[in-house]
Design a binder for these strands. Structure first.
Lengths: 190, 190
DNA sequence: AATCTAATTAGTTATTTATCGAATTAGAGG
DNA sequence: CCTCTAATTCGATAAATAACTAATTAGATT
């Protein structure tokens, strides 16, 4: 789910009256006047809230004579409720271990600059893997792009580039760089 | 989770900047200046957002020298994300069948008033069960409270009260009413 | 003590929004 | 055509809030 859809879903739930509406509709379908009565608000307020809930895809309605019955879209609610988890997960290639980050972070300044490449092979590998966050898979990168992005971390981009290739984090062909999938990375040393 | 906690959780996620912060922190802990830099906002804005996220229990912080590193409380996020599902579920004792509701609803006006108690025993039982939504288990109720709440449905609260007792939906002792758990209810007739 | 940096507070502004009363629209039924 | 009811729209108001600048606090280092 894209950011703005995700945010407007949570906006829909960021009001006590709307949450109570959903709880009522989970019991049974209700029409506007009944909701207004049970919640102690006026009909225009219900209209206001229902349009937000409808926009968020959480309720649907069925007309019956002059009356409009709203019902909860429970499967949509379930799906959207967990979307935030997928969203933060999708963006986090470092999820495997926060201990790893505890080691890696000492080689970066608070501004995020790399102080120096670790001498220890294991730590060096971790730092290189960390740098790969700049190059998500599924895309290819020119050498110029690689240089620009590595420059943010350290002056000596040539060494960084070479190390990334050596450990098979990336693959180079005719000046085009391509991130390897984790299966092709070199093993984490000792 | 109670309503206001639930709402303030969703308020915390109802802003694109805060969702982006969570996504960044899912990668690795970061301090305020780094967040400000990556998001293109000023430090006071970060302070503002972090206090909301902290209040919602989604981030924690660790001081190190002069710098404060924030990290995501992922398990809290997971727990709270699904809380809305439990909330709407908990309030819906009618979930077992919407066919049941199709029968029951004919005895209520669109405003939610009970037209009359059904003569058929099975339908009468269903209507009484439906009325029990007013009296969640885990609490006790005075007769006055019972009367007030039943009054919304029908004038003749005495009959309703008596029927609820007869069918063992509630238990009365010394003028205090207590809802029975479903195991103690009388069997649904027919 | 003086200084540097990160974070916070205070105060301001512009935007959003929850709610209401009054007026209007949309159907249904006489 | 008239009337009734449910729902919506319109306009107004009050409250919440996201963002900034400027000033201040809190620790750490010199």
């Amino acid at each position: 789910m894209q950011l703005d859809r995700l945010v407007s879903f949570h906006k829909a739930l960021a009001d006590p009256t709307r949450v109570r509406i959903l709880a009522l509709l989970a019991r049974s379908p209700l029409h506007g006047q009944a909701l207004a009565g049970k919640l102690g608000v006026k009909p225009p307020t219900i209209t206001h809230h229902m349009s937000k809930l409808r926009e968020a895809g959480l309720v649907k309605e069925k007309r019956e004579k002059n009356t409009i019955y709203f019902h909860l879209e429970k499967t949509a609610l379930q799906r959207k409720a967990v979307a935030i988890l997928e969203y933060v997960e999708r963006e986090s290639p470092m999820k495997e271990s926060s201990q790893e980050w505890e080691i890696v972070r000492h080689f970066f300044t608070p501004q995020g600059q790399l102080k120096h490449l670790p001498a220890q092979r294991k730590k060096r590998w971790m730092v290189l893997k960390y740098l790969m966050r700049e190059f998500p898979p599924g895309e290819t990168y020119t050498e110029q792009t690689i240089n620009e992005r590595l420059k943010k971390y350290h002056e000596d981009v040539a060494t960084l580039r070479r190390e990334l290739i050596i450990h098979h984090f990336m693959y180079r062909e005719k000046g085009i760089y391509q991130p390897n999938p984790p299966e092709l990375w070199s093993e984490m040393p000792g």
